[in-house]
């Protein structure tokens, strides 16, 4: 499974580099090739504007990864800080912060991100803002729960009675113990941010034309499914391979680092 996951990820990495190396142009329009099936000129066929599906797939996965890494980094930073504060201090701060997270969790799934993306308007930056505003909550909950348990561990109490400052307690004595659980969470969140980005782009709220994005390609694929079924099939299979690979990677890390997370 580990080999399977890493080989798929490696495949996409090499493919993206090849795309850059051969300067495949994702926006070059060939009106003679509109919705054409895979051929020697267009290995995976062409889309509704006669652009190479291969080139667009490769550019799309690049953008998708960049979004996923950025959003994961931001949400993790914010969520972990809030979770540490709530878990360390407990009491009123904890209750207030948890009530805020409760409100965010009252919006199921991607609904809140859709709402934010809708009012902020489409585009790459707004997409990342919308995903970040809604993504920090799970990190905050996770960190808070862990920090709450670690707060009264003996090594923390010992350091406290020796006069260690609060930042030192948090960053030297609590945070290091959370590393593995956060690494695993971050891997899964890479996959879920990619899915969320693609969902929003699918709805027309994310990355805008002419820029390539898998979500928008899938939507176009659905639109032309009757005349060019290869389009939706290729994008669908690519998406499946990537999500599978990242989740398998997450499972591997979870077992390796011996982290117990819910579900």
């Amino acid at each position: 499974m580990k080999k399977f996951a890493s080989s798929i990820l490696l495949f996409w990495l090499v493919a993206v580099m090849f795309g850059r190396l051969f300067q495949l142009n994702p926006n070059a329009i060939d009106l003679n090739a509109i919705l054409s099936a895979p051929s020697f000129t267009y290995l995976l066929g062409a889309d509704d504007l006669g652009r190479s599906i291969l080139a667009r797939l490769l550019r799309g996965v690049e953008v998708s990864f960049i979004v996923a890494i950025f959003v994961t980094a931001i949400t993790m930073l914010v969520g972990v800080c809030i979770g540490l504060l709530a878990g360390f201090y407990g009491g009123k701060i904890d209750r207030a912060l948890m009530q805020v997270t409760d409100v965010f969790l009252a919006f199921p799934g991607i609904l809140l991100a859709i709402a934010f993306a809708a009012v902020l308007g489409p585009g790459l930056v707004n997409l990342m803002i919308a995903l970040s505003i809604t993504g920090w909550v799970s990190y905050a909950r996770l960190t808070r729960g862990q920090a709450l348990g670690l707060r009264n561990r003996q090594h923390v109490l010992a350091a406290e009675s020796l006069g260690a400052s609060v930042p030192r307690l948090i960053f030297k004595h609590i945070l290091p113990l959370l590393t593995s659980i956060l690494v695993v969470e971050a891997t899964y969140s890479l996959a879920s941010v990619m899915i969320a980005e693609a969902s929003l782009s699918f709805l027309g709220l994310g990355i805008q034309a002419p820029n390539a994005s898998w979500g928008a390609m899938l939507r176009d694929g659905v639109r032309y499914m009757l005349i060019a079924p290869h389009y939706v099939l290729i994008v669908g299979l690519s998406l499946m391979s990537l999500i599978l690979a990242i989740n398998l990677g997450g499972d591997y890390l979870r077992d390796k680092l011996d982290v117990r997370t819910e579900q």
Binding site: G215, L218, P229, V232, L239, M240, I243, N247
Partner: peptide
């Protein structure tokens, strides 16, 4: 369960 609806939907439709 890891596959999103916007993947499964088009695949079933196809």
């Amino acid at each position: 369960s890891a596959m999103p609806a916007f993947w499964l939907g088009p695949m079933l439709m196809l």
